[in-house]
Amino acid sequence: MTIIHEITVLPGINKQGEREEFIPIIIRPGDCLSIVGPTGSGKTAFINDIEVFAQGDTATKRIVLVNGEVPDEMLVRDPAQKPIAMITQNTKCFADLTVNDFLIMHIKARGLSDASIVDRVISVANGFTGEYVTPEMRVTSLSGGQTRALLISDALVIGNKPIILLDEIENAGIFKEKVISCLKNNKRAVIFVTHDPYVALLSERRIVMKNGAVTKVIEPGPSEEAALFEIRRMDECLHSLRERIRSGEQILGIA
């Protein structure tokens, strides 16, 4: 299997067909990038390009290289070799199977045999969500948050993908910072689309989209640390407030 040292995204065109101007974006294992921009600005299109290893054949005309070269066809097409898993804004499970059977089918499709992997996937998933997933639940009846937690864990444990693309995970009601730190700790490259200020500042690089094009790549270094500290505090405050509302409290003060 090809070892992925880096993935390079070369500029394409914006929605008017004008060249976008950016220095080739290089993504390496362990990197963490966020994609931000107004709705409709092309964030999903950007990570789609990475997912399909665009060769100038998508709407954006971008080109994606692996280790500096046009990727081998098998790397793109053979699911076992493909180094990328994407969890989309729409991702659902349609298979009419229990969590256990679904994971076993995936394990078999991968030619793996160790059945204890199932427990590992479920326990990692349960680290991402407050509502526990159990093996006998049907995948079709999982909530949006549970589904994504399970699929992210599946991509990490069974898929063993070095690159994971996440489209707006904050909407799913999962512990987003846990997901990101877990993926980082496992040396995965994580690229996520987000509208959430806290998640956006958790990345080391921020790609800013407008009108279908990348307009800026920000590498804040330590310059945003103070802000991040403050946002984390606000996020924790909102989190506890959310929990209090969920548990039926009447909110008379937010301290």
Binding site: A59, A80, A85, N90, F94, A95, A155, I158, G159, K161
Partner: peptide, 30 residues
Amino acid sequence: LISQAEKEVFRECIEKVTNTTEIIETNALE
């Protein structure tokens, strides 16, 4: 609309039926 995991499972289901048909996955809208 589906995850990488389900894509792989679905591919496996097709391969159970035939191994001579080439499989191409797409979002046909894009």
